[in-house]
Computed example of a mutant assay.
Amino acid sequence: MVTQTRFEEEVNAFLSFQKGQKLPVLGEMFPCPVLYFPERLLAIHLISLEKTSLLSPDTFVKLSDVLAAEGIKVIHLWEDVWHSKKEVVQSRLRAAFGISQRIPARLTKVRRIDKPTLERFMDVHHLQVSTNAKFKYGLFLPKNYQRILKDDSPATLFLTQQMTIQGEALVAVASFSGGKNILREGKTFRSFELIRFANHLDCTVVGGLDKLLKAFVTELQPDDIMTYADRDWSDGRSYERLGFERMEATPPHTFWVNPDTWERYYAERLLSEKMGLHWVKVYNSGNWKFLKKMI
């Protein structure tokens, strides 16, 4: 009998509301357990830090490709991400099973937000840290739509508190770069990057990213917008539904994790003298690059 790591036990306990099964057909090709939920065509790959010596940088891309060929989406869940961003991870896992407060974007108001507002939201509601952005937008749900919030949603208390104090609640954000002149196909295009998008924890703003993109396009009139989808969590199909074209896959990144703090550092940015001997080398699956052309 294979002994579960503590991390694997925690995730299995959290997912006990769903009936899953392991994927034994993958054999020894992928040494970390892969939980499969056939009714969702969803697989969750659990990667414990103590098993990283069994993995190579292309492990995750191979697994994603094997399952994608069967129409199965995979989430690569690392132990350090589970511990460092547990609330965000759990919110996203619940959403993957359709457990989320759905908010129609047509009920929200879109407007620019400032840097502190973006950073506070991203710190709580996104897996990655906020980065420098030139343009920042938010979707706000007015208090008069408080009635759509479900009593049993974990988000309801936080949203109603915001509405009571401010008369509205911030439910999604998007950030964009400044414009750059890009030469492509012999022509110069004014190109921008969609840097980050995030929903409020345990919420899905239906049509939210589309509304934010339209506000940005109306104001800035870009020739195109580029963005990346994290292959650890996304197959990128949601971008294709918004008119983005899948351009290429970027290579996996290498990181070092401090297991005492669960902090993750880019390998190429880390000075060797700052790295502990017990730190663990990890990888991601790389990204999908997308481009939305306006002209």
Score class of each variant (00 low, 15 high):
Phe7Trp: 05
Phe7Arg: 00
Phe7Val: 08
Val11Asn: 12
Asn12Tyr: 04
Phe14His: 10
Phe14Arg: 05
Phe17His: 09
Pro24Glu: 15
Glu28Arg: 10
Cys32His: 14
Val34Phe: 13
Val34Ser: 15
Leu35Val: 08
Leu35His: 13
Leu35Asp: 14
Ser48Pro: 15
Leu54Ile: 15
Ser56Cys: 13
Ser56Met: 09
Thr59Asn: 10
Lys62Tyr: 07
Ala69Asn: 14
Glu70Phe: 07
Gly71Trp: 03
Trp78Phe: 04
Lys85Gly: 05
Gln90Trp: 02
Arg94Ile: 00
Ala95Lys: 05
Ile99Asn: 11
Ser100Val: 04
Pro104Tyr: 07
Pro104Ser: 15
Ala105Trp: 01
Val110Tyr: 06
Asp123Val: 01
Gln146Ile: 00
Lys150Ile: 03
Lys150Tyr: 10
Asp152His: 01
Ala155Cys: 02
Gln161Ala: 13
Met163Pro: 09
Val171Ala: 01
Ala172Trp: 05
Phe176Asp: 06
Ser177Asp: 05
Lys180Gly: 02
Thr188Ala: 09
Val206Gln: 08
Val206Trp: 00
Asp210Cys: 06
Leu213Pro: 03
Ala215Met: 11
Met226Asp: 08
Asp230Lys: 06
Gly243Phe: 01
Glu248Ala: 08
Thr250Phe: 11
Pro251Met: 09
Pro251Leu: 10
Val257Cys: 06
Asn258Gln: 08
Thr261Val: 14
Trp262Met: 09
Trp262Arg: 10
Glu263Leu: 12
Glu263Cys: 08
Tyr266Phe: 15
Val280Glu: 10
Val280Trp: 00
Val282Gln: 07
Tyr283Pro: 01
Lys289Phe: 14
Phe290Arg: 09
Lys293Phe: 03
